[in-house]
Design a binder for these strands. Structure first.
Lengths: 212, 212, 212, 212
DNA sequence: CATGAATGAGAGTTCATTCAT
DNA sequence: TATGAATGAACTCTCATTCAT
């Protein structure tokens, strides 16, 4: 019993070690230019070993998204559980949570956005794909629950809360991708934070009922 | 002379022929899994011929974006030139223009969004990169000019019009990427149109001054 | 009659035009890195036209050797015909002739040396190969005749004159290849001339009988 | 440890195995017509494996030269160390050493001569290029030291010993290239040995002071 | 005779993945 | 479990050559 558990824990630790290494390399070189050997070197393991823990490169790549999605959920649930009564403040808290997620690991988050609607998705183990779907769903539902409250209170306009959550998520990913893109192309300053700020402000005004 | 012009036209037609083929294949197989030979076969040409018209795979890929950006600009400038006085109606027109662009060629638009902030950008001919930058800039500026008017009239809230344009663009790309992603993952219905609809509605509310 | 001749002449002029262009490009980029298109551009012709005058790239390349061999023969025969009686002076004249040939076009001469014993030779038209053989033979024989005289006079040691000619030729090509090589590798000064000078001096001493 | 050493040895053996195969194929087909796949097949390995041991085709090719240069140095140093007092006999020993090197592997030696002053040199790893330069330098210096002795003793004429060494090397390579060339073109007998014999004889006479 | 667009075979090289140790 | 050498399919891209005009 104890032995089995320890093995389990060690296996999990090894997985983490590889993911940390992968994250570093993917962040530096981008997905397609990263080789399994790069990752193996970074993890101080041999290429073959990676395959003991991950089915293939895509799977390893996608696994990274899981972690950030998990972190997102934690932060979102925290916002929900804080039980802030003022819906405006809740939106603020939501914004902060999302920005934290971005700052937690910008590259991985961007990679995850790229993962969306790319061929990579089709090569994943059903199991992994399910996990991603499940986590995405929970994130969106958690977000939606915030809006649901506000709608029920008559504070927000009456729209499908899931649709609103989709829009927030879209806006969030859109701003990050676009601002990062501009930063790279034009070698300009990083406007992610300020643009997100404005975007959320407009969004909040947009869903808040006019209290005559 | 007639001869020169005809050659010119034929050359352009060939380019188009290749781009059409490329579009089809990229859409089906995704960028990284598409080989130049695939495209050549689709275009009923030999692989070598592609290189007479496009420097390399990346360049061919990116060229597809140019066309849609050009179409976007045409539509946006049309909105500006229509001289609609009601800012709310202008936002509606903007929304319709963007949705038209999406419908013009969804896959290519999505590919273009993917192009943003990917390594591919770094491999392009400076010339092509400049073209893309230039077209992007013009699109955004055109959009911004719409908001500028509304702000000057006191109809929209006082935010940097370029930042607002960035947000609209982000929202647009974010919604399309995310809804497409959901569609693929969950094999569900296509909500792009309805989500864009709601997003624009919220956005409009968000930037419109409360007229007490 | 006149027409035919003019055509002939024009054809020959075109050949020369191509060879001049080819020489320039081969000299700059080296044989394997030179493309037929490079040469066509330099000659202000289209690639296809080159094939009207030369069977293929190898053939064009080898043709260049013909010209320099012809020039060599002219110079050598001149030395023979000058009827210098002093064999020592004839060796000096020989040396000068060869150095002139080197200076006439170093790159082409070097390329010709490379041509020797390489695969290129095997791809040539029998006709061209015969021409090269013939010219080489004549060069060597001309050289040999110089030594023959000296041997007959008892001025030179009694060795097969053809063998001596082979040695002079080998020494000549060896020095040029090796000094050029050193120049490239070590980016050092050009010692071709001074080394040839010394080599000929030693050679002359070596074949001259000790006149007790 | 034993294991590490064995691995080391096996790795070296693999390198040798590849070089032997490469030598065979290069000799048969010539450098440019030899493909990496040819070599891989000859070595009974896969193409990819070659790249584990050699950076690229040029590098593999050039590596072959290293071995023969090393052999040359060994033979030359042996001549120097024999401490033969008679300079004439030393020249004989030198000649024999060089002829041995030729016989050790004629094709590779010829390839090495071709390598000199060809574009291939420019594509090599700096490291490999340095090795070649270093070995060449040592060979020439060792040769030069033989002449230096003779000059100091007043036995040889007073010329820069390094220049003399260059001339010997040039003569050696020149004779081999030229005789091989003649052999191929005219399908005649192999005169390398006898021509080298005569060349050295003339050379010896040429640098030896007349002892009145 | 001249063109130059098109060809298409084939090259060198990479790298995710496997498997004997 | 971990290794890392070996694999070999697959890739992009080049270029000598052809041929319809």
């Amino acid at each position: 019993m104890g032995i089995k558990e320890r093995k389990e824990r060690e296996k999990e630790r090894r997985r983490q070690q590889i993911m940390v290494a992968a994250k570093r390399v993917f962040s530096t070189k981008g997905f397609s230019k990263t080789t399994m050997e790069d990752i193996a070197k970074e993890a101080e393991l041999s290429p073959g070993t990676l395959y003991l823990y991950f089915k293939n490169k895509d799977e390893l790549y996608a696994s990274l998204s899981l972690r950030i999605l998990q972190y997102l959920i934690i932060r979102l649930e925290h916002v929900v559980n804080e039980k802030i009564s003022d819906p405006g403040k809740r939106i603020q808290a939501l914004k902060e949570a999302m920005f934290d997620v971005y700052e937690f690991d910008p590259m991985i988050l961007i990679n995850m956005f790229h993962l969306q609607s790319s061929d990579t998705l089709k090569n994943l183990t059903p199991k992994l794909l399910d996990q991603i779907k499940e986590l995405s769903k929970r994130s969106l539902e958690t977000m939606a629950s915030i809006f649901e409250d506000g709608i029920r209170n008559g504070y927000f306009i009456d729209k499908n809360p899931v649709a609103i959550a989709d829009i927030v998520w879209s806006m969030f990913s859109g701003v990050i991708l676009w601002e990062t893109s501009k930063k790279i192309i034009n070698k300009q300053k990083d406007y992610v934070k300020s643009t997100l700020e404005t975007a959320f402000e407009i969004f909040e005004r947009g869903i808040t009922r006019n209290t005559a």
